[in-house]
């Protein structure tokens, strides 16, 4: 098992390298540059040229990449933002907290809703309850995040004035747990609708497959109570494919953050990503890309490890039969 994890981590290094190279090239092919966003158009050309040299933008592209990589590998440094001149690392770290709070809550709440509803839907297949859940989950998947977000803002913030329309705290306020919760309600609803909608279907279909298995009949023949049959024999087997999907849910949430954080002005990674793109802030974007790639790879490795723990057949093949 340990050797397997180590192997996966070593493979991750060339993958990360490839991702940064491709991102760097794509970024440079896009029109616009940081100077235009940074300084006044009235500035004389000589001054612009001096700024470009200072930022290293006049070097050949491969050399710029090489400098960025060298800085990262030798010093573990992601450089300074071309727009705000802050260190990229501290900018990302500062934005990480809000994103993790939002995404973590959405994932946990979404699964807490999806798993029981999915089980119920499967055990009562083709009942009215099943149809209600399946239709609800279909709606949750189908409504685009931004659309549901804007509707919620319009209804609850603009018309009813019950909830704030965005941000993490009131302007000038000092925050606090209660204010944070109030500000989280709307974005969480949007994210949970999506996460729960998607996963109800996965849980339902996975459970249906297991519920048709012969060994559940065996469990019933043993004289086990129905609840025990469903929870111990069916759910645990159904969770194996679900775990994989939950692992893939993390990168999806990370991507969804860009839209949600923009709509609700949530000061997280997604908002930083969008503003960095607008400002052509190359160095910050490289840092964000690296983080995003890392999250995806880490989620995949984590999924494989968890997979091994939920399926004793796989676990045993790693341990090598010793138990």
């Amino acid at each position: 098992m340990f050797g397997y994890i180590l192997r996966r981590l070593l493979i991750a290094i060339p993958v990360l390298f490839g991702v940064t190279v491709i991102n760097f090239i794509i970024m440079r092919m896009a029109p616009g540059n940081p100077i235009d966003m940074l300084v006044s158009p009235k500035l004389p050309d000589a001054a612009r040229e001096a700024k470009a040299i200072e930022l290293g933008l006049n070097d050949p592209v491969y050399l710029q990449y090489w400098n960025w990589l060298k800085n990262l590998v030798m010093h573990g440094d992601l450089g300074y933002s071309m727009y705000t001149s802050e260190p990229v690392v501290s900018m990302i770290l500062e934005r990480m907290g809000p994103t993790l709070i939002l995404m973590g809550t959405a994932l946990v709440l979404g699964l807490l809703i999806a798993i029981p509803l999915g089980i119920l839907s499967a055990t009562k297949q083709y009942s009215k309850l099943d149809y209600i859940f399946v239709t609800g989950s279909f709606l949750g998947i189908s409504i685009p995040n931004f659309f549901l977000g804007l509707i919620l803002v319009y209804v609850f913030a603009v018309q009813l004035s019950w909830l704030p329309s965005g941000g993490m705290k009131e302007v000038g306020g000092d925050g606090g747990f209660g204010t944070l919760l109030v500000h989280m309600i709307l974005p969480i609803i949007v994210l949970v609708a999506n996460v729960a909608g998607r996963n109800i279907r996965y849980v339902r279909s996975s459970m249906l497959e297991i519920l048709g298995q012969d060994y559940l009949r065996t469990a019933r023949a043993k004289g086990l109570k129905e609840l025990f049959v469903v929870n111990r024999h069916a759910l645990r087997n159904a969770l194996i494919p679900i775990v994989t999907i939950i692992g893939l849910e993390i990168p999806i949430l990370f991507g969804g953050a860009v839209v949600i954080e923009q709509i609700f002005s949530w000061p997280g990674i997604g908002q930083l990503t969008l503003s960095s793109i607008m400002n052509r802030d190359y160095s910050t974007l490289m840092g964000l890309n690296l983080v995003a790639a890392f999250v995806v790879i880490a989620a995949n490795i984590l999924t494989d490890i968890v997979y091994a723990f939920v399926d004793p057949r796989i676990r045993k093949s790693y341990v090598g039969g010793a138990k």
């Binding site: 060994y215 019933r220 023949a221 399926d311 057949r313």
Partner: peptide, 25 residues
């Protein structure tokens, strides 16, 4: 009475490949 009767009457199923829960020892 399915639960209490299972103590009196038991069944051996046809397919030994699919009738045992694969995740239990």
């Amino acid at each position: 009475d399915r639960v209490s009767l299972s103590k009196q009457i038991q069944i051996v199923f046809q397919d030994p490949y699919s009738s045992l829960n694969p995740r239990l020892t």
